[in-house]
C-alpha cells in the first residue's frame, strides 16, 4: 500500500490554494483530514499528481452557531469537534447523534464534515445529516463564492459538482424556526464499519404538530437518499403511531439498497423502517413527557 508519486503543497491562503488547484487542471486534490483520500491513494485507486493541503488556511477550522440557530461548519472542523460541540447539539440534536457514530476515534480526530460531503461516499454519514437539515455547501473558486444546496452538491457515488479549482470552504445548516427534534441511527456490523444502513431524521415541531421534516438515508442507494415522501407523511400532523408508521413505510420505500456482503436488500429496507420508527417514536415519547 504505497501511493504513486505525487507533489505536495501547503498554501497559506485560500487564493493560493485555489491557484494551485487551477494550475493542477483536474489532477490536484484537496487534502483536509485525509481519512478517505489517503487510503484511496495507498490503494492507488486515487492517483492525484498534486495534493493541496488546506490545513494551514486560516479560519477554516471555525465552528460557529449564529443567533438564529444557523450552524456554520468550516472545512477544517473535525468530526471530533462536532462530537464535543454541546451548543451545536442543543440546536440540532441530529448532529450530536451522528458525530459519535462516525468511524472510530482515530478517524474522528482528523476527518472533517466538509471532506465527508465532498468525498460523497454513498455510505457516508454526514451527507444524510446535512440533507435532513436542508444544509448547503459554500464553495470558493477563482470566480468567487457560491452556495450549493446539498441535494445538488452530490451528483453520484464519489462525485460532486465542485469545479476542479473550487474549494468547499464550509457547510451551513440553516437555523430552525420551531422546536427541533431528531436523531441518527446507523447499523454497522462492527464499530468503525461503514453503514450497512443509516437514517438521519430532523424535524421541527410547533406544539405537537410537525412543521418541517427531513429524513435522509445512507447506505441504501448510489448516493444519499432524501426520503421526501417520508418527510411529507409527517408535516402538518402530530407524531401519532399512524404518522410514524406512514413515514417509516415511505422511507423504506424510498430506500434503493442493493444486496452485498453487508446484507440483503430486504434487510436494509427493514432496518430503515426500524430506524425511522425508533427515532420518531422516541421523539414523540420525549415530547409527550415534556408536555
Amino acid at each position: 500500500m504505497y501511493p504513486s508519486r505525487f507533489a505536495y503543497e501547503a498554501p497559506r491562503t485560500l487564493d493560493e490554494a485555489i491557484g494551485l488547484l487551477h494550475d493542477g487542471a483536474g489532477e490536484a486534490k484537496v487534502l483536509a483530514g485525509g481519512q478517505s483520500l489517503v487510503p484511496l491513494m495507498k490503494l492507488r485507486f486515487a492517483n492525484p499528481e498534486l495534493l493541496v493541503d488546506i490545513n494551514n488556511l486560516p479560519g477554516l477550522d471555525r465552528l460557529e452557531t449564529l443567533a438564529d440557530g444557523t450552524i456554520r461548519v468550516g472545512a477544517l472542523v473535525r468530526h471530533r469537534d462536532l462530537e464535543r460541540a454541546g451548543d451545536v447539539h442543543r440546536i440540532q440534536p441530529v448532529v450530536g447523534a451522528a458525530a459519535p457514530l462516525i468511524a472510530d476515534p482515530i478517524v474522528r480526530t482528523r476527518g472533517t464534515l466538509v471532506g465527508s460531503l465532498c468525498h460523497a461516499d454513498p455510505q457516508g454519514d454526514w451527507a444524510a445529516v446535512v440533507t435532513a437539515l436542508r444544509g448547503y455547501v459554500v464553495a470558493q473558486g477563482p470566480g468567487g463564492r457560491r452556495e450549493i444546496p446539498i441535494g445538488d452538491f452530490v451528483t453520484g457515488p464519489f462525485q460532486n459538482v465542485l469545479a476542479h479549482d473550487e474549494v468547499a470552504v464550509e457547510a451551513v445548516l440553516p437555523g430552525p424556526r420551531h422546536t427541533v427534534a431528531g436523531g441518527f441511527l446507523k447499523l454497522e456490523r462492527r464499530v468503525g464499519d461503514f453503514a450497512t444502513a443509516g437514517t438521519a431524521v430532523a424535524i421541527e415541531l410547533d406544539g405537537d404538530r410537525v412543521t418541517r421534516a427531513g429524513i435522509a438515508l445512507t447506505g441504501v442507494g448510489s448516493r444519499t437518499v432524501d426520503a421526501t415522501g417520508a418527510a411529507e407523511a409527517l408535516v402538518g400532523r402530530a407524531l401519532t403511531s399512524e404518522a410514524i408508521a406512514a413515514a417509516a413505510d415511505a422511507a423504506a420505500e424510498a430506500a434503493q439498497p442493493t444486496a452485498d456482503h453487508r446484507g440483503s436488500a430486504a434487510y436494509k429496507k427493514h432496518v430503515i423502517h426500524t430506524f425511522v420508527t425508533r427515532i420518531l417514536t422516541r421523539v414523540s415519547t420525549t415530547s409527550e413527557q415534556a408536555a
Binding site: 447499523l187 456490523r189 450497512t196 453487508r262 446484507g263 440483503s264 430486504a266 434487510y267 436494509k268 432496518v271
Partner: peptide, 8 residues
Amino acid sequence: LTPSRVWE
C-alpha cells in the same frame, strides 16, 4: 451470523 443473516 451478521445482522442481515440473522434477520433472514
